[in-house]
């Protein structure tokens, strides 16, 4: 981020704490993609993801005074989104498409093709809630393991084992789905 953008964001965080509507708007526009994507990749449901993302921003609006800095804001948004997604999955036991219901690909996928990406996205959505969020924070947000541990309030060793196990699971599922195609 450029110095100008940094300064604008810093000013927006200050304004947010004082209930400034323009600051809130700037923050919503700046972080809407991050929050929505976490909820969307978690739920694979655009309407549900939009509802959850809206709730996160409205929660931010109510708790604006507690935000101390842009870094804290980003951490806060990730943490609230992650916990809302996990809580929602627990409460509603979101039913995800089983692997058996997925159609087999018609042809061997080329390098980084959209079909493979779509399939991976669907497979990620079949992981248990907390593991799924670890994968999202690692590969969507590209957070380090200790940052994921802070966001999800879990020991770093748990994050490591969740990530390792999830990758093994994804690889196995992908192998099953795509036959002999090695990824």
């Amino acid at each position: 981020m450029s110095d100008g953008a940094d300064r604008r964001l810093q000013n927006a965080v200050t304004g947010l704490a004082h209930g400034d509507a323009a600051s809130f708007e700037l923050i919503v526009r700046r972080y809407q993609s991050m929050v929505f994507s976490l909820a969307y990749h978690f739920s694979h449901d655009r309407a549900l993801a939009e509802d959850m993302a809206q709730e996160v921003f409205l929660h931010l609006h109510r708790n604006a005074a507690s935000i101390k800095s842009p870094a804290h804001l980003e951490f806060w948004l990730r943490r609230v989104t992650a916990h809302r997604c996990i809580d929602h999955a627990r409460r509603n036991r979101i039913a995800f498409a089983s692997l058996e219901s997925e159609k087999e690909p018609l042809a061997r996928p080329p390098e980084s093709d959209p079909l493979l990406s779509r399939k991976l996205g669907q497979l990620v959505a079949t992981l248990p809630a907390r593991r799924r969020m670890v994968v999202l924070l690692r590969f969507q947000e590209e957070l380090e393991l200790h940052e994921i541990a802070e966001v999800l309030e879990m020991p770093i060793n748990t994050v490591k084992s969740y990530l390792q196990r999830s990758l093994e699971l994804l690889r196995a599922k992908l192998d099953r789905c795509l036959g002999d195609v090695r990824v």
Partner: peptide
């Protein structure tokens, strides 16, 4: 390779059009 594919598959997506406006209206 799997990790690279995951980064591609899980790249950020834009919310539906008018999302920010709806959030701002609800906040008001």
């Amino acid at each position: 390779r799997l990790e690279d594919e995951l980064k591609t598959a899980l790249r950020r997506v834009e919310p539906p059009a008018g999302f920010a406006e709806r959030v701002l209206a609800q906040a008001r």
